[in-house]
Simulated assay, not measured.
Amino acid sequence: MKKIEIDDELYHYIASNTQSIGENATQILRRLLNLSPVSASNKEQNTRIKEAKLDVKPDVITKIEDNTESKTTDIGPADVFNVLNKEELAMQKGVVGRFLFILSALHRTHKNRFSKVLEVKGKHRIYFAMSKEALLDSGSSMNPKNIPESEYWVMTNSNTTRKKLMLHEVAILLDYNETQAETLRDFL
């Protein structure tokens, strides 16, 4: 089996066509291209090669219909679950690493609306800003961190419960339903 690199738009398309939990990219593409499933003799060979599973939940998948153009600037509320990879998430260093990883996935999925995170605030300080200095100016002990692959910064010097509340609020602002927001929060 060969490895190939694909861009984010293609990855999202493949992931959005997942029909069952644990279905891998090869199975999805074979189905979409009307090719026969992998034969039993090929399965033995495939077990030696670790394939990345598309870890998505069927009830939160947004399908992209054939013959339609996809505008990928803002994919849709359910698609962050297609972007989040539980194995990569587990490899992040501590709660702060997972927190930043989830926020980065939300940013990639919702670039056009991610500025809504700036509305998430505490009583006396802001949690998100466009610069490190803005966070530092709003309070002491902020420990600001850049959200990877974005221009946004987040306060990370809070307990895990506060970070979960922040993730939940961000998810709601980005139009996730309560169940999806709780699922996202529990990834932390």
Rank of each mutant, 00 (worst) to 15 (best):
L174Q: 11
N159W: 08
H168M: 02
G122I: 05
S115I: 04
K132S: 12
L84I: 15
E178D: 10
L89T: 09
E87G: 14
F114T: 04
G139R: 06
Y152C: 01
R125V: 05
G94Q: 01
E178I: 12
A134E: 09
V83C: 14
F101P: 00
T161W: 10
S104A: 11
E88W: 12
T109Y: 01
L167W: 04
L165M: 08
S158R: 11
L165H: 02
F81I: 06
Y152F: 10
A171T: 13
R162I: 15
L106W: 02
N143M: 06
N177W: 08
K123N: 07
H110G: 10
T109C: 12
T109Q: 08
T161E: 14
V154Q: 04
A105H: 05
I172G: 08
L136A: 09
S104M: 05
L100G: 03
K121E: 13
K86D: 14
V83W: 15
R98Y: 00
K116F: 07
L167I: 14
F101A: 01
K123Q: 04
N157F: 12
V154F: 05
M155W: 10
Y127L: 12
D137A: 14
I126G: 03
Y176N: 13
V96Q: 09
F101E: 03
M130T: 09
S131K: 00
S138E: 02
P148N: 12
I147L: 01
L167H: 02
Y127H: 12
A134I: 04
G97A: 05
R113G: 01
N82D: 13
V120E: 07
H110M: 13
V170R: 09
V96L: 00
K164W: 08
S150V: 00
Y152M: 03
K116T: 05
K164S: 06
T160C: 05
L118T: 00
A171E: 11
I147E: 04
H110P: 11
T160E: 11
S138V: 10
L118P: 02
H107K: 05
M142Q: 14
A134Y: 01
F114M: 08
N143G: 00
R162D: 11
K86A: 14
L174F: 13
D137Y: 05
N159P: 10
T156N: 02
M155P: 04
L174E: 10
L106P: 01
F101T: 01
S140V: 07
D137K: 13
E119M: 11
E169H: 12
M142T: 09
S150A: 02
I172D: 10
M142W: 04
K121R: 14
G94D: 06
S138L: 04
N159T: 08
V80T: 14
E169R: 14
F114Y: 12
R108T: 13
G94N: 06
V117M: 03
G122C: 01
M142K: 09
T156Q: 00
L118A: 02
H110N: 15
D175Y: 01
Y127C: 03
M142Y: 07
L84D: 06
G94H: 03
K164I: 09
N112S: 10
N82S: 15
S141C: 08
Y152E: 01
E151H: 03
R125H: 14
L89E: 06
M166T: 15
L103C: 09
S115G: 08
N146Q: 15
